[in-house]
Structure formats: structure tokens, C-alpha cells
Design a protein around this nucleic acid. Sequence first.
DNA 1: TGGATTATCGTCAGAATGACGAGAAAAAAG
DNA 2: CTTTTTTCTCGTCATTCTGACGATAATCCA
Lengths: 226, 226
Amino acid sequence: MSYPVFAVTVDLVVLTVRDGELNVLLVQRGIEPHLGRWALPGGFVLADEDLDAAAKRELAEETGLDGPAGHLEQLGSYGAPDRDPRGRVVTVAYLALLPDLPTPTAGTDAAAAAWTPIGKLGLAFDHDRILADGIERARSKLEYTPLAAAFCPPEFTIAALRQVYEAVWGEELDPRNFHRKATSTPGFVESTGHSTEGEPGRPARLYRRGDAVLLNPPILRRKPNG
Amino acid sequence: MSYPVFAVTVDLVVLTVRDGELNVLLVQRGIEPHLGRWALPGGFVLADEDLDAAAKRELAEETGLDGPAGHLEQLGSYGAPDRDPRGRVVTVAYLALLPDLPTPTAGTDAAAAAWTPIGKLGLAFDHDRILADGIERARSKLEYTPLAAAFCPPEFTIAALRQVYEAVWGEELDPRNFHRKATSTPGFVESTGHSTEGEPGRPARLYRRGDAVLLNPPILRRKPNG
DNA sequence: TGGATTATCGTCAGAATGACGAGAAAAAAG
DNA sequence: CTTTTTTCTCGTCATTCTGACGATAATCCA
């Protein structure tokens, strides 16, 4: 039996919140095809490597991060026959949610790497589509899971958590109602006993991520469909 | 530049509700590897074929169905290096939700095809895992989307819709509260004006699927985490 | 004709939500 | 040092949503 031959890559939608805005990690391509254009970071899956392992490896290469911080999950696969001029390439996209980090270093095959606010970006390949799918996944996951904390450092205030929601959803939330909701949903956050110091305003209690996997009840956006 | 070579397959988790139970479409393998064992239907992606097109083609081959009935979406990709003894094979799994259909015919490479109630199945390859992921996706999608109607014929009663929820979730729902919820959630179902005839009990009004993409508010399971 | 069965509507208490007032605790300004 | 500003935290209240369940309607079946 014979069957067609493919190359398999992983591409990463790495999101973070900087200055109250949702940002994505992009690299400027240093090789053909699409040389010089901006694209999602990624690369080929190695001969003896699992897909998840390839995604973790690429994430570590691009961000220097390889601890358990943040969140990484598979987003979906994209395999249109003409999506890569080099031939038949299927890419498995992953979504990563990370706390704010220093500007990353450009990896091999990349001329530059940068955090970029989301918007109309004109990326290489089908990466605009993949990015849009990743953003929608992140918006939706914030409703039903405690993953907003993946955007925060290990200890964070309720206000910081709320600003994550506001940045990802592009929607303002009432601080008082959000505070009630975050602290009363079981397993969302747990108090550390510490507080902020030196910031303007009343000091805020610091929390860490709770052990819930799903938020019950969820925190719903006002208009999931627009 | 050189990079590893892969084969790419699509595998289908085809679910339906039969006799109040959630069933999955399985095929008995007619070729090596795993000859004679039960597995999810699937096959290789063709040389000039998109992933979604391959999934649609396989679904049509296995069920004879190719209209817009039911629902088909990508579930996820699985690519552990040792998941197929023939070599490096990445499979893109799809989830299909269909109304109850006659028993399907076995396709090529399959000795038999059958609807099977879900449970501990011992499938070939990593298909137990893929099936479990598909079932969990279906359970979750019923909470937030109107996709339960994909399990029903074009016109259906509220009771039939409720029985879909009960079969997929394995949980009984109060008929009166479910009726209120289904008919009051905007875009979930719309009345056709017809009613059932010849069934025991009071005739039930028939509905068709509404135009909503998301249920707002959602219909939540009692214990999403177990 | 009467009972069984299922659909549909209604009621009521408790939970969750949205809108907003008000006090607490700090830094910043005068 | 006092006042103002800022932000956090708690509380109130009306509205909506949910779960539990009673009651009636409309058919089939014996």
C-alpha cells in the first residue's frame, strides 16, 4: 500500500497581557518561504517526537520558559493542500497562555521576535486564521475555566485577574461584582495571606490559583456572538 | 533542509443516540495492523485533499450520508511516535454527531461496521483515548451549543431533545424544567406548527433547530467534573 | 367509559447576577 | 499634618434563572 507523504509542523499562538492589551508572540521569518514576513513561531516535529513534546520544545526555544508556568493546549490542525509552497505540510497549532515576560529572543530561522497587540496583522501562511481561532479559544476558555490565572504571576490581586478578563474580552467588568464572583466561585482562587505594598490605593490581598478545573457557575461574556 | 516524513490519517468519532443510549460507529479491521480488532473508522488523507474534506469523504463512505444533516467538527490530533507500527502516522480526529441511521455498511479495509454502546471497548491503536476525548467534547458541547439537535431528525419533540441530553450525559433531567428551558432559550428551537400523531400520551409539538450558534444562558450539567 | 401516559403550563423558594452605595486603607497633594 | 485621591472590599436591592413539584390537557389503550 502507498499513501501520500506529509511534513508535520507545530505552530504556537502564544498570548499574554501587556499594558492592559492582549498580545501575541510573533517572529519575523529569516528563511523562505515568506522571508521577512511576520508569522507565528513554530517548526517541524522531529522524527521521534510526540506532538505535545514538539510544542513544549518550541515554546521553550522561543521564550526561554520551560517550567510549569502558564498553560499549553492543542488548538487544532490545519492542512489545506496549498497552505505551504514547499509541499504538503500539516501544522498542529497549540495555544499558550503566559504571564507577561521580557521580550523574547529570536530563535533559529527567525530574524526577530516581538510581542504584538492583536489586530489586523497580515501574517504569513494561514496564520491569521490560526491566530483568530486561538484568540476565540482563549476568550471562550476564560468563561468556563480558571485559566485567566495563567496570564498572571504566581501571586496576583483580584484586580489583576479582572484586567486579564478585560484585556482578553475587550469589555469592562464591574470591579465589585467581579470581586464577589472570583472570591465566591469554589476553587478559582485561594488567598495567600499576603498583600500588595507601595501601590496607590488601599492594599489588595494576594491570591494564587485554586485547584478547580472548571468554573461552576461560569463567568459569561455579555455577547458571546457579537 | 530535511525534515521527518509522516503519513496523515483522519479518524472519526461518529456518535448517535439509539434506544436511549449513546452509540459509536466502529469498524472491524480487515487489514494489518490490528487485523480483526475494532477501531474507529478512518483512512489516509489523499495527496491533494484538505483535512476537512478527507473527514467528510470518510464519513460519507462509512455512513452513506453526505448531506448537511448532523454535525462534523475537528476534535484533535494524535501523533505519539509509536502509535502505529507502520511508522510515523499522525491522525486528525473528527467528531460527528448524527441522527439515528440504519446500520452502516462496512467500507473497504473493514470486515464489519456496527453501532456500539459506549463503554470499556479496548479499541485498536490509541482509539480508546480518542473516543473518550470525543465523548467528553460532545458532553461539553451540549452545554453551550444547540448541537443536541444534530442527533435528531429534522423535526423533533422537546422530549426527544431531552432524551438526547439524558443519553449523552447519562443523567436524568426534569421534563418540565427542560421544556421551559428549551423553549425559552432564544434560537435553540423553533416551532413547526406540526404535532406528533399515533403515539401514546398527549400529542407533542414538533420543532426544528433554531439559528443560534451558542446557548445563552447555557444548560449546565450537574457535575461537570464528576 | 375510565385509566394510563405524556405534554404543557404554573407556582414558589433559593441562587446568581447586575447596578450601585459606602466604608476602609493606603499613597499623594497641599 | 490634614485633606484629597485612589483603589479595595463589603453590603444592599431588584431582577433573572434554576430546581422542585403541583395541576391540567390531550391523546391512546383496555
